[in-house]
Amino acid sequence: MHVDEFLDPKILIVSGKGGVGKTTVAAALALVAARHGRKVCMAEIDRKGTLPKLFGGGEVTYEPRELSPGVWGLNIIPEDALAEYLRVQYHMSRISRVFRSTHFVDYITTAAPGLKDILVLGKIWYLEQDRDHGGGAHGFDTIIVDAPAAGHMATFLKAPQGLADAVRLGPVRRQSEWLNDMLTDPKRSRVHLVSLAEEIPASETLETSEALDKELGISQGAVFANAVYSRLLMDEEADEFERIAADGKIDELCDVAKASGINLDDDDLGALHGYARFLKARRNIQSQHLRKLSRGVTQPVMELPFLFSAGLALPDIETLADVIEEQMETL
């Protein structure tokens, strides 16, 4: 697959169950896009600071800020989005200040469910259309949305349709249709799902993918199977070691080691054996779920390595970006 094809369209929505590394994968995708000369905007939704941690400090607010060369970040807070909407649509900037001190957004979003999601999607639409509302137009080529966890994603993406059904006439009806068009047009938006090669996240990923396809009609890119143990050792090699041990020929191996100046005691041999077994066992579980994922979805499944250094800082994201780039070529 050509790189540009993989990195298109402009809006890439990244989602997955809690704890699968959704933000990390979104950030790696952002780096890949930036390496290919795109000006990228990463949008977090209403939360406090996973992005700044990955990109080394500072605060991410409603106003986009450059986090690393070519990668910008913002935090879409519904209250801010409402204030922007009221300011732009109704020239009401004073009253919007009241919202901050009250539960106001809670009330109206309860009164009209989905409104919070609409406000967030509205901001994404502003970014996509590159509207200048005082802060200057940014000219982003790619917008990566770190979407709500999979359980809430369907509600999130369905919101414009729901609102369009509820409101028959007027500007709000028209605007919700715009948002729905934006999401369902494969030339404008696409969803990437992040999963783990484990029972619960993998099953949930399959369900989400099917819902996106059948109920929401939203285009899908790849499924990222995150944290897959690299094959530092093949199954056959682990077996070979077991065989040597069973044949009582461990001493021969120890002699080979000694020839290179390495002294292996019983504890060391136990550890080599134990981790070989552990890798094999966990890999087998993962392979089973990787197969299940590949069979269950039509889009490509991309394996991302478990990071043995897992400090989850910029270098780790760079590593994941390298892997994505490599695999992109082979798709």
Binding site: L232, L233, E237, E240, F241, L253, V256, A257, I262, A271, L272, Y275, A276, L279
Partner: peptide, 10 residues
Amino acid sequence: QLLAKLIDNE
């Protein structure tokens, strides 16, 4: 080579 891989993995 086998041993080196085992050590890498460990």
